[in-house]
Every structure is written in structure tokens, then in C-alpha cells.
Design a protein around this nucleic acid. Structure first.
Lengths: 228, 228
DNA sequence: CATAAAAACGAACGTTCGTGCTATTATATT
DNA sequence: AATATAATAGCACGAACGTTCGTTTTTATG
């Protein structure tokens, strides 16, 4: 039923040339710090388990003061997904895309993903994997946002594989999308083994597994792939 | 804080030789029908999202009447996990283990798992995959029960692969546990693609993918593996 | 059929949920 | 420094949460 919400969105009011987090109006800065905590909380408790009271407590704010930054709980969830997406782009995708097209970029994506789980970029493992399985039987804007982010991620991975084929690093005969799906399945499996089964070597094993698989597709022009 | 809970567990009071669902005391029968609904509800809304009020409404029972079958919400969650485990064993594991050791049993497990998602044995896709990612950052008996069930599942899969190696259907050179993990990762990926991305062909594609992979390990003595 | 036991109910408990007001601070702008 | 605006706090709301209790209805047993 939410009413007004006259607030401006993050990033819009950047003084030009200033660093991203500086020079923001107070409101936008607070909003951002709320969302950074929200992302971690949601990666552990889930996006439904993320409650406004708990979030306010964590930030030592009043419920109402915090709530005023969002029009509804759904808006908070959407903003949290969006913040997680930005962090993911910044920490995984951007560094990988800085690598030259071909094998380096592909490896950058794979290892970046595995590292972000191991290094706890999100407190509870991969935010989007958790959110995927939480919302995959629901409908509505939150589920749509999660699905859209995941489609984009698969697209990025697919394009990187395609690029590695174009540069003749790996065989052109395989289907890039299918291979992207395989790689990501193994990555999700590793996240699952680490988080649920406490398999401390899960990420290393997955890395080796994925590299072996890529190596099996390598062509003569392919730069060396170092395992272990 | 829960107090008494003097109720007997399902299965204990079976008249010997009688069919499983017959000959149960009224209480145990009700308890079972509650749990069957609980499993479906939890597979959609999550084990935390499974609320006693919602469950009572679904069953047209009073909250208190339903609650009396369990000592606490945690007990309800544990019982729900246990019921899901029983259904999973009955519908996927048992039929596969009825197959002769070797390739048939291994294929039975793989295809049984994929089918149980496609055929909606659980309303919201695989119960345990959803539960895994919901509880993988928590602690306590519920998480432990989920983890134990998943370890058992991986063990069953691993033993089936080992069996297929012993019968010389597939190469003995590969690591059975690693291969089990790969297969299950692809299966989880398929569940993810079907449920979140609405990829209607996800299960068929995963089936083909897994069969191809097994075929790649086939030995001369191996019975034919039919793709498509 | 009477009677004891088990199962289900209705009402209420204290909490927490999301949300809506109004008042009070803090920040920007003139 | 005065003033307008944005941000936060305080308080309250109805609903739903898990849980407890005493009572009533149903089932099983002698």
C-alpha cells in the first residue's frame, strides 16, 4: 500500500568526478550502509528472514527511521538484491572483464566466483545462489529481479566462453551456453559442499575440476592453464 | 521449552504385515497427513516459511490441535525433513536399488532424481536442495538433519558408481566420489534452471548431459546407454 | 455400554512482524 | 544566523507468529 517515497536513488546525485561513496547526500549514504548490512544479513537468513527490526537493531537505528528509506519490505528486498548485484559486478565481473578476451577472462570469471564464496564477499556464501533457491517457487518482482541477475550472469559466462573460442583458445565445437551451465553447476555444487557439508576443500576441488575441464578443450594456441 | 509430547513415532505401531498407512492409531495417521502437506508447503515456502497457522488452515485444523502433534516448531521442522527423507527414499532410492548393480542402478538413481523434480514429487522442486541452501549458514538440529540426509544421498550415488566400476561397466580410473559430486551438481543446476529460469528443457538437457558423461566412461562390457 | 484415554478445539498469552502517523532532530540553502 | 527541508525517532496499529491452557469431542478399551 506504500505511499510517497520521494527519495532519490543511489548514484544519481554523485558530484561529477567524485568517488562513488563520497559526496552523497546524507540520506543516500545511510541508505547505502543499510543495504550493505542487509545484503550480508539476507545471505545468511534469506531475503524473507531479513526483517526490518533485526536490521534496525544491527544498525542501531529505529525501525521507523530505517523503514522511511524504503516504501515497503518488498522495496527493501529489491534494493538489497540490487546492492548485491552491484557488489557482485564490482568484485567478480569487473575484474574479470578487465582481463583480455579469451582464456584469461574466462578463468577470471570462474576463479573470481569461487573466490568470492571462499573469501566471504557475502557472509553466507553466494547471495544469488541462496536467493535463487529461496524464490524459485514464488512469483513477483523480487523473484524476477533475482532471475534477471542470474540470466545476465549466465550470459556473461557464455560470452566469455564464446570469446575463448573466437581467440582459438578452446575448441569451437562445444556449445558455449551449455558449457557455461556446466561450469556454473559445478560452482554452485562447490558452494553447497562448503556451506552445508563443511567440505573445506570444496572450492579448491571445484577449481581444479573446472580447470581440468577447460584444459580438455584447449587448443594449440591456448596459453598454459595451471592446475593446483 | 516444550513439555511432554508423549506421542509415538510413525511406523512403530504398525500391525505386523499390514500396509504402511493402514492400522495406525488415529494420532499417527493425522500426524502423517499433516507432514505430507508440510513437506509440500516447505518445498515452496521454505522450512522457516512453513508456519503452523498456515499449515493448520491448509488442513482445516485448529492451530492448537495441529501443534499438539509436535512439541515445538523445530520438532515440526525435523519431522518434516524426516518425512521428506522417507518420500525420497521410497520414490527415488528404493526403485533404483531394485535395479541390478552396475550401470542400471546408476542410471536409475540419476533419472529417478531428475524425474522427481520434473514430476513434482515435491511441489516446489527438490525439497532437499531448497532446504540445503536455506539452512547452510545456520546451525542446529534441523541443519544437521538436512546435511546428514545429503551426505547419505551422496554416499548412495557414490556406491552406485563404485558398483558400476566393479561390474566393469565404466572405467575404474575415475574417482567415484568426485564423479558423484559432478553428477549431483549438474542435477542441482537443472533444478535451478527449471524452477528459477523456467527452462522447460532443463531436465531433459541435464539427463542428456549426464548420460553423455557416463557414456564417455563406458567400457566394452557396458550395456547400451540410450540418449534422447 | 460405560469409561478412560487420546485428540482436537477455542481462546488467550507475550512477541514480533510490516506499516503509518506525528514530533523532533539534523542537514542544506539563502 | 535564519529558515526550509530532509532524516530520524517515538509510539501505536492490526495481524500473525509460536506456544500454553482448560475444555470438549472423538476414539479405543474393558
Amino acid at each position: 500500500m506504500r505511499l510517497f517515497v520521494p527519495r532519490l536513488q543511489g548514484g544519481v546525485c554523485l558530484a561529477r568526478g567524485a568517488a562513488a561513496t563520497e559526496r552523497l547526500a546524507k540520506g543516500a549514504r545511510t541508505r547505502e550502509s543499510i543495504l550493505r548490512v542487509a545484503v550480508d544479513l539476507a545471505s545468511v537468513e534469506g531475503l524473507e528472514g531479513l526483517t526490518i527490526g533485526r536490521l534496525a537493531e544491527e544498525l542501531k537505528m529505529s525501525k521507523s527511521g530505517l523503514f522511511a528509506h524504503f516504501g515497503s519490505k518488498e522495496d527493501l528486498q529489491l534494493a538489497t538484491v540490487e546492492m548485491a548485484r552491484q557488489i557482485f559486478v564490482e568484485r567478480i565481473i569487473r575484474p574479470a572483464l578487465a582481463q583480455p578476451e579469451g582464456l584469461p577472462r574466462l578463468l577470471g570469471l570462474c576463479e573470481g566466483w569461487l573466490d568470492h564464496v571462499k573469501n566471504r564477499v557475502f557472509k553466507g556464501g553466494c547471495f544469488f545462489t541462496a536467493a535463487s533457491f529461496e524464490f524459485d517457487s514464488r512469483s513477483g518482482p523480487v523473484r524476477d529481479a533475482i532471475a534477471a541477475a542470474m540470466r545476465t550472469w549466465l550470459d556473461v559466462l557464455t560470452r566469455a566462453i564464446d570469446g575463448a573460442q573466437k581467440t582459438h583458445h578452446i575448441k569451437a565445437s562445444i556449445d558455449a551456453r551449455k558449457f557455461a551451465f556446466e561450469i556454473y553447476s559445478l560452482a554452485m555444487g562447490a558452494n553447497w559442499a562448503l556451506q552445508l557439508l563443511d567440505d573445506k576443500d570444496a572450492m579448491a576441488k571445484a577449481r581444479q575440476n573446472i580447470l581440468e575441464r577447460i584444459k580438455g578443450l584447449a587448443m594449440p594456441q591456448c596459453p598454459p592453464i595451471k592446475l593446483k
